[in-house]
Each structure stands twice: as structure tokens, then as C-alpha cells.
Nucleic acid binder design. Sequence first.
DNA 1: CTGAAAGCGCTAACAG
DNA 2: CTGTTAGCGCTTTCAG
Lengths: 344, 344
Amino acid sequence: MPTSRDVARRAGVSQSTVSRALAGHASVDDGLRERVLAAAGELGYRPNEAARAMRTSRSGNVGVVTARLANPLYPELLQVLSRELSGAGMRMVVWDTDDADGGAAVDAARSGGVDGVIFTTATGGSTRLYRAVTERVPVALVNRTVAGWPCDQVESDNRGGGAAVAAYFAAAGRRRIGLVAGPPDASTIRGREDGFREGLSAAGLDLDRGRCARVDGFSYRSGFEAAARLLELAAPPDAVFCVNDVLALGARDAARSLGVPVPDALWIVGYDDIEMASWAAFDLTTVRQPLAEMAAHAVRLLLRRIGGTAAPHEHLVLPNPLVVRGSTGRRPVPMPAQSCGVAA
Amino acid sequence: MPTSRDVARRAGVSQSTVSRALAGHASVDDGLRERVLAAAGELGYRPNEAARAMRTSRSGNVGVVTARLANPLYPELLQVLSRELSGAGMRMVVWDTDDADGGAAVDAARSGGVDGVIFTTATGGSTRLYRAVTERVPVALVNRTVAGWPCDQVESDNRGGGAAVAAYFAAAGRRRIGLVAGPPDASTIRGREDGFREGLSAAGLDLDRGRCARVDGFSYRSGFEAAARLLELAAPPDAVFCVNDVLALGARDAARSLGVPVPDALWIVGYDDIEMASWAAFDLTTVRQPLAEMAAHAVRLLLRRIGGTAAPHEHLVLPNPLVVRGSTGRRPVPMPAQSCGVAA
DNA sequence: CTGAAAGCGCTAACAG
DNA sequence: CTGTTAGCGCTTTCAG
């Protein structure tokens, strides 16, 4: 592999001029710059990234920690993060791990392998991540957040979305309300549940404990089984909120299997608006997370932090619109705003 | 950040002893090694990766080029690749790009940002990738391959899988055979189609051109529309092979929408065995790609190449079993082996 | 505006 | 077995 020294020799200039010319420093004479560029092109020169990284203490890599969790939301989020990062000239290193703690990613950040890390599945339980954050490793949380942690965080208005679903059910005259809940260590899930419960209370409805099922994993199968349990009750729900789409897709199929007509006998609403929610087999009403915007903000905030800003940490909450489809009979949402975003 | 020099000072040894101790060289006295490890622990020392990369010409990163293509196969493949790579102590840099050419990945390999690249979506059209391969950039192709290219390649027996589907249709007495084909620049698609056609010929069936639909993208929607066209023919197919699962899921829903009973009036078979194929709403017979094995081989071959082996390039073809589900009435496959693997 | 020179933190000879 | 030394290829002063 040719080095900048080789380019310099060929162009008849010094090695430092090559460095400056390629870095686009204005202080290089146009004639020389062209000679350098030509020489570099002829040799097929590419700057050695390791050397540059060592000098600049920047790898150009950003880590992203995700967990498949059988949830197609994460590939979709990864895709938009990838777009944002490559737009910013950064590479994306992916850790697909079930430990929400991201140990390897934090280590990589400490040793300079990545310049910072975006967590999509953080939970408050990780002391290791907490320590990294407090020791000023550049970290941004997106999707799942952890209240009070000193780092940039971007989420969407899960509480508002949950409340909107409750209001929607109430306005439509649904009365036997069901909930398929999930593991409460994820902020997203807690927010959706809390908002839903509050929204029901506000509408004067109550959520019978018997019509709540809590699954311990986000999978089609667990959604299917939870919904099947609810539908076999003596007084089954006439509307079910599932805290994410994968669960809701399973629930929809449980209804199909049991011959429960949707939406007539049962409304189903999910959360996330993953691509499959719009497929004809499901046609699922859901709440959309604005992934592209979330990714854009997370990348922007992380890069700012990597750049060494001392600005206070931001915690953004983006709005979550309700997307009405066939699983609720396409009934329009009532007048009042169905969701709201708050920035703090 | 503390350096190995700081550790050396604290442990009262030379910097090179620190390097050796941490690298696990046997030639270091046990007492010293412990002092060094203790000092490193106390300081929270992490070796600087950029410096190490510069010295060793190894970044510890492997690139993976993929394209979402609305196909859940790719996240699944990414997941197993991630597992393999992290098991080998490598990080995974992901490029999610629509240009199959992987320009950025090749550039990164040339400049040392990654040690090698795994392509999951290569096609023969990319002169840029071809040049990289011939210039000995460590590259492995997995899933899609390109015949004759001088690099390690891992695929599954798409031709055999396609043929097995044909034989299955024939043995079951299906006669009006349909095909939902895809863009032929992907080796996977060509193989499946060719094998399917050959299998039909071998069984004495023919494939009426009118019952072939070619979509130009792999999406649920395009599968839906293609199947809808076929089902509206005067003599619609009684069995349709879709060259991948996403298309098949769309086709299944088209049948549902048009009131065509599956499997009674129509058999549907897909390809890949993505997770959704097993969901109750679809219950899709399909051909399974052994992603985990493919990923393991691809990683092994790439790492060997990165290690500088001069071994001849391998081209592995792993077996593709037919997975029978409800969309073909769970009818068992006939006796003869339904698929075969060839290694060359 | 350009060249000479220093040095980032590490690994790997080479001496002892 | 351990210390000394020499760079890896680049960016960035510092002189000129």
C-alpha cells in the first residue's frame, strides 16, 4: 500500500504538503494541490486510517447497540441510523446483544475503537453503562431511555401514544378493555402502559385486572398466546391494546384462529408501526414511532458530544401519531389532538 | 486515558513488559505479570486500539454489506454474522446500501478501516467490487455469489431447492404451475428459478409463460400484486412458487383477499424460511437457507484470508431443506432426497 | 506557502 | 526473562 510519503516523492513535494493538500487546507497552492491529487490518484493512494486515528484520537466509528428481540423495529431503526451515520461520514459498528448492558461497546469506546455509542435498548439496570455515562464516554440513548441519566436521550412520546389509544377506545364506546403488557424494564413499555392506564382513567373507564396479560418476551408467539387467554374469558375484551406491534400481530392471528371477528367483536391496536403492520393480513391500527427523526437527533447529539461540547444533555420526546387501519374498523380519531411531543 | 507507559511506571517495569504481559506472552515472569495486571486494573487501562492497529495493520473490524430490500432475511443473516464475528473477537461494521457495489466498504478495506468485507448482496455487475477482489482485498461472498470470481463464496443450494419444490408440486399432482420470479441479477434468484424449471421438465410438467410473473423488487406488495394477476387468469395456477418468502407472504394475502382457499385451490411455496413464514397467518411452506452455517463458513473463510492464507478460494454450497407447512396442506415430501449440498 | 521534525501508543526486534 | 530502541503513517507545530 502506498503511503503519503510515496505520493510526496511522486509529486515532488514534501510529505506534509501531501497531508495538507488531501485534507483540503486552503493554504496549499493550486498547482501543487493538483500535482498531489494526480500522484495520489495514479498510485491509488488511500490514507491509512489507523495512523490517522492515532494522531487525531478519532476512529470514525460509532457503535450501535441493539437486540433483535424478535422485533422488526430494530432493523428499521438500524437502517435509519445507518443512513444518518454514513451521511455524517461515520461508520456504524453494530452490537447485537441480549445483555442490555453493552459491555463490549463501552469497552470499545474506552479503547478508541469507536468514538461513541448509541444504545437503542438501554435499561436502568446496567451499572456498567451507568458508569460509562458518568465517566463521560460519549453515549446517546434512543428509543429506550433511562430517566435522570446524564447523557443525551431521544425517545418518542410513549405515554402520550398510550393515552391516545385509551381515548380512542373510549370515544368509540369500547368498554371491555384489554391490555397485553410487556416487561416493564423498558422505558418504552412503561410509558405506553402508564399512558394507557391514565387515559382510561381520564375517560372514566377502568382496566379490569383479569383482562391484562403480561408477556415476558416480545414475540409473535407470546402475543398470540396472551390474546388467546384473554379471548377465552367469560367476558372477553372488545378492544385490546398491545404494547408493541409484534405482540399485536400475534394477537390478531389468535383472534383469527379463534374465529373472533376483527374489528367487529374485537379491536386490536399495536405500537411502533413496523412495516408488517400495514400488510393486508394484519391491517393493524398502531402508533407510529418517528424513527427517522429519532435517529437523526440521536446521531446529531452524539456527534456533538464526540466533538467535545459541554452543552447540557438533551432529552427529546418526539410526537407519536396514531395510525388508523382496519383492526379498528378505520374509525377516525376524535377531535382532540391524539398525541403530543414535549422537548425538555 | 492512561497509556501502557503509565502502567509501566506504576508497576515499576518497562513499557514493553507491560505490552508483553497484557498480550499473554509466556516469557513473562508470573510475579511481574501480576504486578502489571494489578496496575492496569487500578488505572482502568485499556490499550489504545488505533496504536495497535497501526502497528499490526489489523483493525479488528470486519465489514458486512447488506441491503434491506424489505427482506427480513438480511437482519436474520446479520444476526448470525454478528454472533460469529464477535465470537472471533471481531467487530462488525455494517453498510446498508442499495448499490450492490459496496464502494464505501471496499474503500474502508483499502484504507485499513476494516480488515475484510463480507458481501451478502453481491451481483456480477459491479466492476468496482470485481477489481477489489482481484487486487486481493479480503472478501467473502455469502448468500448471493458470483460464478468465477476469485474469492471465497458461500451459498446454499438454490438450484436444488427450486428443483425440490418442482418435484413436490409434481408428486402432489399439481398441474397448473405458477411462478413469481424476481430480478435475475441475484444468483440466488437465478438458481431457484433455473432449478424450478429444470425440476418441472424432469417431471414432465411445463411452465406456461402466462403463469409466470416477474417482479422487480422484493416486497410484500409486489408479491401481492403478482399473485393477484395470476389468480385472475382464466385458468389460474393451482400451485405457485415464489422465489422468496416476502413475495410468498404477499401472495398468500392476495389469495386471502380474493377468496382463493389455500391450500385447497392454491398451493404456495416460498424461499428462505424467514421467521414470519411460520406465523399462523401465513403458515408457509418454504425452503430453508441454513443461515447460521453459512455465516460460520463465511466468517471462517474470510478470517483465514485476512490471516494471509494462500489456500485456493473455496466455493461452498450448503443443503437447502424443504420445510412443509399449511400452505401446501402439510403434505409430506415424496421419498427421494429433497435437496442436496455440493462442496467444490 | 512549504519543508523539516516531532510524536501519537503500541509491537517486535535486538541486546543484555 | 527484561529493558532499550526503532519505527508503523499520519497530523501538526515550528521555521524558513
